[in-house]
Every structure is written in structure tokens, then in C-alpha cells.
Design a protein around this nucleic acid. Sequence first.
RNA 1: GCGGAUAUGGCGUAAUUGGUAGCCGCGCUAGACUUAGGAUCUAGUUCCUCACGGAGUGGGAGUUCGAGUCUCCCUAUCCGCACCA
Length: 938
Amino acid sequence: MDYNYCEIEPKWQQYWREQKVYQADNNSNKPHFYVLDMFPYPSGAGLHVGHPLGYIASDIYARYKRLKGFNVLHPMGYDAYGLPAEQYAIQTGQHPAITTEQNIKRYREQLDKIGFSFDWDREVRTCDPKYYHWTQWTFIQLFNSYYCTSCQKAKPISRLIEHFAQNGSADLHVACGQELSFTAEEWNAYSEQQKSDVLMNYRLAYLADIPVNWCPELGTVLANDEVVNGLSVRGGYPVERKLMRQWSLRITAYAQRLVDGLEQVDWTDSLKEIQRNWIGRSEGAAVWFPLEKGDHSFEIFTTRPDTIFGVTFMVLCPEHEMISEITTPEQREAVDQYVAWAKNRSERERQAEVKTVSGVFTGAYAVNPLTQERIPIWVSEYVLAGYGTGAIMAVPAHDSRDFAFAKHFNLPIRQVVAPSVEEVSDPATWTESMDAKVGVSVNSGFITGMKVKDAMKAVIAKVGEMGIGHKTVNFRLRDAIFSRQRYWGEPFPIYYKNGVPCAIPEDKLPLELPEIKEFRPTATGEPPLGHATVWAWDEQQGKVVENSKIDNINVFPLELSTMPGFAGSSGYYMRYMDPCNQEAYFSKEAAGYWQNVDLYVGGAEHGTGHLIYARFWNKFLFDLGLSTKEEPFQKLINQGMIQGRSNFVYRSKENNNLFISKNIPGRAEKTVPIHVDINIVDNDVLDIEKFRAWRPEFKDAQFELEDGKYICGWEVEKMSKSMFNVQNPDDLVARYGADTLRLYEMFLGPVEQAKPWDTNGIEGVHRFLKKFWRLYESVKDVPASKAELKILHQTIKKISEDIERFSFNTAVSTFMICVNDLSAAKCSKREILEPLVVLMAPFAPHIAEELWHQMGNQGSVTLASWPLFEEKYLVEDTFSYPVSFNGKMRFTVDLPATADAAMAEKAVMEAPESQKWLAGAKPKKVIFVPKRIINVVV
RNA sequence: GCGGAUAUGGCGUAAUUGGUAGCCGCGCUAGACUUAGGAUCUAGUUCCUCACGGAGUGGGAGUUCGAGUCUCCCUAUCCGCACCA
């Protein structure tokens, strides 16, 4: 009987589904293991071959762990809220819920065909009220929490309110928007509205007027990671800066813990580095510079306090609040003009012109607190409002930006750091500043002669003594804007009681997304939820009622924004542990059992988005006592992107109906390349009949062939419909079967590596499976020879190692070698083939299952026992056999310094290793150097 | 500009982690069987050379008995950040 994948694959998929073979148990004595994939956004285009790459890798690992006796949690779900479905709704009027449902159905069909071992009973969808119940719940917890900086932990806001009532703002150690100062008496006298405003400064989810990334085309604000080069990631529309009242998450409170946590996880260095850069921790000093006139002073942040003697001017950002106050009458017009100009520039213009220097003098002066020098104060765009204090001390000699500014406006440059005290030069001759933190201070009063590091400490100590500064840490990370002016997202569980935002009671959750018919913003510019007619909160009844009932006594308006995409994806991995819990996000027992994700597989493109938000979310849940581990994802594998591999035909310039094969001499000049559908090309050979049928215009196409074939050109490009290079996994499953697809995707190369998709090698993998199948056609119950056992044992050993280090491509190669060897030996012995089929089960589960049952075994092979081999089939010390898989045996023998080749050979033959493994046979090759024999090839 | 990664046959890749390159697969060459097939099997295939032999892991140096692997300097490609004081 032939290997009939069309029959066996659906059969076993059904069996697994019906027998619930992959159901994970929350109460088990087995060791636990949690394997997670980044759940997909169900887009209308369906899966392409890039998606399953990571899923197959994680599935192999999950199945391997099951064979190893672990209770494995391997769930899947959908990140179902998102812009594309809503944009589609705007264009067509089709409700996003319908589009999403259809897409999910399609995804599920595609996923099912590949034979994954997901526990579908645990499926979550972010748009399901039973799920977003807990997204909303978490939001309320964030809203009702503040961050205590002395114990580095989130705490209930009620504790802060008590503190205010007793002590006012004194002795606060909290993360906040700005430093406020009030007494207990003042607090107690505040109105509800005032108290609410003050608390917003401390809540972990807070409402504030902040400069946001506004995308007019999408009609919504975007988070920093959703904007690249001033354009939206989704759609590529321009984004502008705008001041808006938005919900934000105080993720900056967790910045230090987010940096520290990276030490505990097993991620690649490059991804950790991406996160460190995004968080952008930098140590330095805060220093107050007094103004020359009046008693005001302003704060600056610097990472180079040691250069304070080199300050020759100060710069404020155009948004700085002190500008209008300090600007002199003579300079007012110029300053106003500059500030207005800067304000009107789009983010994109600003970024495009980073190298251009612009700025204006305010006419005001500050005083250097250490030298008492008078320092002019300027305004310039190159100082950013969002970082540090929006004001800097400029040291043009040792900062390239300050240097460019000083050159442009002809401001003095003073060297204060040099390689040594003697090596001082004239900065007027410099072409660039000396930014490196090396050398010693010069021209710097009491720190002159000190090394940079010591000088920094000395200056910090000095300003500390003077009460005008201290050591501090700054982060580049900004709070995450959490509002989206969109419909298809989680509604905020918030209503506005006469302007005061209030959370709806937890026992009334979920607050379900209301139905609307029009998905655009309202005529008055409100978000789409402004169209909802039943979107008001009745406090008495504790439910949603018609808007018409709003009286601001009992019935209040609800929030019209919705949450962003990352809201639902920040905690889904915890929900999988206990997906049906109606009383809680997840039970403490479930979290206590599963702990955290042991292995997370997904793309590196989430390095600055999802992976930061999820870590923050989990740390918060940890502070609440819900999550048992502070870091959610212990080990992370980044699957490489699959690029497209486009094929081309070459159309003659003279004759539109003539196509010339790639390698015909002179072709390049005579033709133009045209993209051709990769599905009608096989190994770069064009199927001429299919090509003629592909499009009407090619109906009568003529060809100039080489060796009777039409050879296409190829190029690596993005996988996209317009280049006809999208490979749909379904087509390959239909043609070769899921097992072939699974093996081939792994065989393509290391999982982490980016690579173009091409099907040129898939035949070889398919052939291997057929060969594997043939081995089992006449299984005999006779004892295996030692040589055959050796093949098996080496394979077991190598496959185990390969899986443990996620080297699935070499694992597939190992199988091929094993099967080649067994075929050559005509080995059909049960003793060999039975364990081999179990070994194969993680990779090609369908064929393994079929053969397992054909051999008369019961139960699923994918739950058989891996140690079976190690105990039952282990002979001698095969697992410590010194011969590696490719036949080299290595051991070291000490030789006298005078040894020659003959003596070396003799020593090899006498070595215990040879006695044991060569059994008198001569080695093929002996490599030796004086004193030691190094390598013996047998 | 800063940071991270990668570079091996015609192609995808492998190399016992410092042990004397190119496993496995594709493709290609020759052959066997054949109901002439997009089946199966056998042998060969890094490059140059009829051969003897020589060269060879992006380029250049270095450490070492020994380097694809370690160090330094270039070059190219990819990714991340980008006026972050």
C-alpha cells in the first residue's frame, strides 16, 4: 500500500479531536510545561507559509515534551480586535464582528489541516466578552492603583488617599506625572473634581492632556511603537503631534523593573538589547540652574555632570513653560515666531531635517552654579519636550549636537575634557566635538585632573551639598497611550460623573461593546461609539441604558474611546491557564501550577510593542498577587521572517507573445521580466500549459526554450499578492500532505533565521516520508543486529539533542540519514521501527500515528513514552559511544615528544577506546601532533 | 551616527563547539529497471587540472601543534534605535 496522506491525515486529526488527546490538565502529578505561540490576528488574507513556521516549531517541542512525560499546555487563540476589520467595515458597512468571525473560521480550517496539538478547549478570543471582561477588570485595577517607589510595587489608590488626608503631599514616594505640593487640610477641602484631578497624577491608568501621535486618516491616536518614521504602521498614513486628553498607562513606573527583569529570562541578546534601547535607561544628574534675574531656577538633566565647567549656553525645548516668562522684550518677536514655527511642524518634517540647526536666543541668562558665569538661554527644536526636563546645559566641546549648534550660531566652545592635562587644544580648530567619556577634566576648577568617572561623582556630590542637584536616572520609555478613537476594541469600563471619571463596579463587568451601524467618527468629531444610542451608565441600576436617559444625577455618559490592540494581547497567556473561569481572570491554583510560559515562540517585530506591554501587565498582576512569576515568558524564540521568492518570465521586447527562457544568450537585452505566479512554476521550470491558461493575454504565448524547458528567473522580495509569490499552506498540504509541509518548513533552515520561501526542496522531504513508509511494509518480530541498534541509538541521541537546542533542520537531516541507513540494510525489524515511529511523532504526527496503529499498538503514538527507548532498548553504553554521527571518533592519547606516525598508530590500537569500539579494525585516518593523538576516523 | 546580527559549493544548509570542511536535501551527470512516468534504485558531484597535484569557509592580519569556529582591522548585507542631553 502506498503512503496515502490524503486519507490518513484527516483520519488522525479527527481521532485526536474526538479523543481530546491534547487536553492539558490543571491537576496533574506530572511536571508541567507551557509552550505558547503568539496568537495571530485573523486577517482576511488567511495564513501564508510564514505563520506556521513558528507554530510547527513550537508544536514539535510541545509534542516532544509530552513524550518526555510532561503535562503540556499548548493553547491557541485569536487577537481578534484590530484596525483592518474596522477599516473594512467603514468601506463596506459589514460589521467587524462578522468579518472577524469569518476570518477566524478560515484560520481554524487552515490550522487544523497542519495537525497541531493545540488544546482547543482553551481557545481565547480578545473580542469575546468572557475574555475582555478581564481586560476591563485589569484596567480598573490599574486605575485604582498607584506605584510606590520605595517598595517598588503597585498599591491600592485608597492607601494614597489616606496618606493625603493625613499628610498631604509630604513624604511621598510614588511614581507621578508631576510633583504636586499640598497639605492635608488643602486636600480635605478639595472638591471631588479637584481630588480626581490630583489622583490622576498618580493612578497607573490615568487621564491626561498629553502630546499624542494623531493619525487623521485613521481618525485615532497611536502608541509610539505603532508609528515608524512619522507614518502609521497600519496603513502608512501620516501622523502628527497633537495635545489630547487620553487614557495612558504609567508603564514608566515599571521602567527599572522592565530593565532588571531581562536578566532573568532566556531570550536572545539582540532582543534584550532592543528592549534595553527602547526603555533607554541613562544615569546622570539633575541640576538646577538659577536665572540671572529674579529668583527662579530651572532643572536640567545631564549624563555628563563632569562637563559642567564647559557650559557656554543653555537650551530649552520650544514647548518649555518658562519661555514666555524669561524672554526679553527685544527678543520676544523672534522667540514667538520660532516657537510657533516649531509647533506647526509635523513629526515627519522634524525627523527628516534632524541635521538642520535652528534656534533662537531668548535674551535671558542663567548662572552656572559652580562658576557663577552668565550663560545665555536659547530655544531650539533639538531639545525634546518629552525627555528629561526639556532643558539642557549645552557643552559644545563634548556633545556633537551642542557643537553643531554652537558652530552655527557662533557661540563659544570651551574644552573641559582632554586625554591628559597637557593635551589641551584649541576648540576653534576642531571639526567635531569630543564626546567620548574618556580622559581627564581640564579647565574645571576643583575637578581638574580627575578622570571622567571620578569627576562625575565629584560634581554630583558638590551640587548635592549645595542643594541644587542630585544623581538621577532617566528613561526614554514613555507612558503608553491607551485610548483609541475606534469602535472595534474593548470599551473602557468608565463613566463620567459630572466630569469625574468613575470605574463601573467590578461585579457589573463585562461592559459589552454596543452595536452601531456607522463606523466613522461622528459629525462632531467624536469616536464611533458616539453613534451608539444605548451607551450610558445608570448608577442606581448598575447597567447600561439609553443615552436619552442621561441626567447626570443617576445616569451618566460612558467613555467613547476603546482600548488599543495591545490591551487584549497583554494578558492572554495567563487566561489560557484557566480560560473558563467566570469569577476571576484565572485562579491562583492554575497560576500556581503553570507558573509562567516556559517557551514562547513568535516574531521579533513585537520587541518594542507586545513584549514590553505584556511584561508590564504581568508585573502588575504579580504586584496584585495574581501572577506567580514576575516575568511572563521564560524562554523566547524568535522565528525568522519568511520572505517571498518571486519568479519571472522574460517577455520579448519585439514580440509580446514571445517568452525567452532565462539562460538563452542575449536574453537580457531582448526582454523585460514579468512576475509570474509561483504556483505554476516548479523548481524554476515554468508549466507552459498552466501559464497559457493563467491569463487571457498569455493564451497564445510562444516560447523559446532551453533543453525543452522554460527556465524562470527569481528574486527575493516581500511576500505579497501583487508579486504572485504568496504561498498558501493549504495548497502544499493538498499536494504533499501536512507531514511533508511540517518537515519541509523545518528542513528549510534554522527557525530563527530569516529566509525566502521556495519549494525547491520539498520533493526530497516528501520522498523521505515515502521511504519511511516503505520501511514499515513488512515489519518482522525478529531481534535486531547490533549494527541496526547502533543506528537507532545514535538517532535517538542526536534527535534529542537537536530538539533541545531547537535545531529542527538538523533533526530532519538526522532522520533522513537513519532511514537511508535502515533502507540500505533492508531492516524491517519491529525492535528498531517501533521506537523510530515514536521518535518521528513530534515532526510528522500523522504518518507516525498511522504506522503505530498498523503495528498493532493502542492509544496515540503522540502520547507514547520517549524514555521507552532509553530503558527498554538501551544496549551497553550506546549513549556514551564516542563515535559521532558522521563516523568520527575522538579521543586523546599521550605520546612521548619523540613519537612518530608509526608509534602513534600503535598507541591508537592499544588505547582502551580502540579495543572497545574498533574491535581490532584499523582506523581510516589518525591525526596526531607531538605528545597527543587528536583524531581518529573509523 | 549608535547598537545588534550574519557572511561556507550552482542553491538551502551541516560541522562532535578549537580537531584538520562541505553531513542531509535540491539541482546536475551517468547508469539500472520499467507498462516510458513528475515512480524506484545505484554511482558521482567544492573549485582548478586529462592527471600528478594544488587552492579553498567575504578580504587582511594575529593567537595556536591545529581556526569556518577565538582576537583585531576592513568590506558587504540584514535588523533595531535615532537630535534621548
